[in-house]
Amino acid sequence: MTKDLVILAEDLMKVYQMGQVEVNALAGVSLSIERGEVVAIMGPSGSGKSTLMNILGCLDLPTSGRYVLDGEVVETLNDDQLANIRNRKVGFIFQSFNLLSRTTALANVELPLRYAGKIPDRRERARAALESVGLGDRISHRPTELSGGQQQRVAIARALINNPAIIMADEPTGNLDSKVGKEILDLLLALNRDKGTTLIIVTHDPVIATQTQRIIRLRDGLVEEKK
């Protein structure tokens, strides 16, 4: 196999116990994503999108199945090891930005580095990351002093800071107007072009999906893949 796979998932199942009923959120999803790809995950609500994102982002473990992220076998890891993988290999971007409102943009971007152990130049790295998303002049602003688009840029800088293997973006433009949303999407795509960052975007929006290289459609916990 010559392809450099960053994600290899085989037959992922996730079963939730809802009272007496068992719900199959994922009913055997297999997929692979190459390094440097931009992939959109689409599907109606209840199709298992979020569950798949949580598992691919190592926030949750599959009930059964096999998942290899950037060479690490994930399904056997314990909580602390999962935290470590999330820290080093996954950058999250959320619909509602999820910044800590009490601290500055710089401190928000620095946060993943603080959980990564001793990193001497983390302030400089955080500053550089903010500059790379065009917020070099906003480093000491608090999230409440920034516009939605700027907040999402801070979140992107935060996702990039540890040079992750994948960036998981969950409706990254969902809380933004279309103009700012396009800017954010362009920024993400530019990062993919310039740095070769693997990008997984979970979205409802077909306009966004068409800008990606590949769309993975989910329905009832299963993949209907089209190139």
Binding site: G57, L59, D79, D80, A83, N84, R86, N87, R88, F92, F94, N98, L100, L111, P112, Y115, A116, R158, N162
Partner: peptide, 15 residues
């Protein structure tokens, strides 16, 4: 939510 975010960013239980 903040705790969830911190965990997503790599905070361990201990942190």
């Amino acid at each position: 939510r903040e705790i969830g975010l911190r965990k997503a960013l790599g905070a361990r239980k201990r942190d």
